[in-house]
Computed example of a mutant assay.
Amino acid sequence: MTEKYRIECIPNVSSADPDVLDKICAAIHAVPEVDLRFVDPGLSANRTVFTYIGPAEAVFEATQRLIETALACIDMRKHSGVHPRMGAIDVCPFVLLDDKKFQAAFLNAVDRFIEHMGTKGLPIYTYEYSARQPSRRNLAVVRKGEYEQLPSRFAQGDFPDVGPKIWNVATAKSGATAMGARPLMVAFNVNLSGGTKNELLLAAKKIAGRIRERDGGLPGVKSIGWYIPDLDVVQVSCNLT
């Protein structure tokens, strides 16, 4: 008998609309073995992070339900927010929670799920452990230019790894998704004070540029400096893997 192993999914959905979030939560709760741990909406970002865990197959089922619900509710042509994003389901990472002996099976299962969702019409750029092009391992590289640059990327042949490769009404509505397996991640955010908003934002962006790996900073660090209007704070936001 094949051993079950537990995984976590942390999809970032481009909406903070309570009605949309209720529908997505209902879709996740429809899968009995999945435990929805956190729902973290950001009003200024117009973005919500979901966190749920469970046996791998159950988590994949819940994720497909989440994706289908989000795509039905969100139109990226009308989306705005202060956080970088490129699709209705902007990023969809999977994390192995159990013993490393399951790593190979886990990575294969994520690849199969990516292929499956591509057949459902979702444009997917693979990243982290699942990256099919080495240059796309880093999420910041995958998402460069955000949603607004996707038509140009498609036109120039910078296509998703899986799913539609034509920019049309359907892909304009959905945008694209970064999906893949990754290690556990720690979010570490620092709010700045002691100056005007513009001074602090300049400092935050400078700090982020100095410390993130992509620009020659610390290994495993992704960082942005940004202003969050609904909290009225300037923040250096870091993801550590």
Score class of each variant (00 low, 15 high):
Val20Thr: 15
Ile28Ser: 02
Ala62Tyr: 12
Leu21Met: 09
Asn189Glu: 08
Leu97Gly: 07
Gly157Trp: 03
Arg77Trp: 10
Leu107Gly: 00
Phe159Ala: 01
Leu200Tyr: 04
Ala58Tyr: 01
Pro18Gln: 08
Ile207Asp: 13
Glu146Met: 14
Asp90Tyr: 05
Glu199Gly: 06
Arg47Gln: 07
Leu66Ser: 07
Glu146Gln: 15
Ile67Val: 15
Arg143Gly: 02
Ile74Val: 15
Ser15Asp: 05
Val34Ser: 05
Glu68Val: 12
Gln235Asp: 10
Asp17Gln: 12
Ala109Phe: 03
Asn189Met: 10
His29Ile: 09
Tyr227Pro: 07
Pro134Gly: 07
Leu139Tyr: 13
Pro219His: 03
Ala45Gln: 00
Glu8Val: 01
Pro123Phe: 07
Leu36Asp: 10
Val49Ser: 07
Ser14Lys: 04
Arg214Pro: 06
Ile28Cys: 09
Leu202Asn: 14
Arg137Ser: 14
Thr51Lys: 10
Val34Leu: 09
Ile207Pro: 11
Ser14Asp: 04
Pro164Gly: 06
Val142Thr: 05
Glu115Val: 15
Asn46Gln: 13
Ser152Leu: 12
Asp215Gln: 13
Phe60Asn: 08
Val186Cys: 13
Ala176Gly: 14
Ala88Val: 11
Ala26Pro: 01
Glu146Asp: 15
Gly42Arg: 01
Ser44Ala: 11
Ala27Tyr: 03
Arg47Thr: 07
Leu200Trp: 05
Phe102Gly: 00
Cys73Thr: 03
Leu139Gly: 11
Val162Gly: 00
Lys144His: 13
Lys173Ser: 05
His116Gln: 14
Ala204Glu: 14
Leu240Tyr: 11
Pro164Trp: 08
Gly217Tyr: 11
Ser44Tyr: 02
Asp40Gly: 00
Ser152Lys: 13
Cys9Asp: 14
Val49Lys: 08
Phe102Trp: 01
Phe38Asn: 14
Arg153Trp: 03
Ala204Ile: 14
Ser44Glu: 03
His116Lys: 15
Glu128Thr: 05
Ser135Leu: 07
Val142His: 02
Ile28Glu: 01
Glu115Met: 14
Val233Lys: 15
Leu139Trp: 13
Val13Gln: 01
Ser223Met: 04
Ser237Trp: 09
Met76Asp: 07
Val39Gly: 08
Leu96Gln: 02
Trp226Phe: 13
Pro151Tyr: 05
Tyr127Lys: 12
Pro229Glu: 13
Val236Ile: 10
Val95Gln: 05
Pro84Cys: 12
Gln235Lys: 11
Ser223Thr: 06
Gly209Thr: 01
Ala88Met: 10
Arg112Ile: 01
Pro164Cys: 07
Gly220Asp: 01
Leu122Ala: 04
Met117Glu: 15
Phe159Cys: 04
Val20Gly: 04
Cys25Gln: 10
Gly121Phe: 09
Asn198Arg: 13
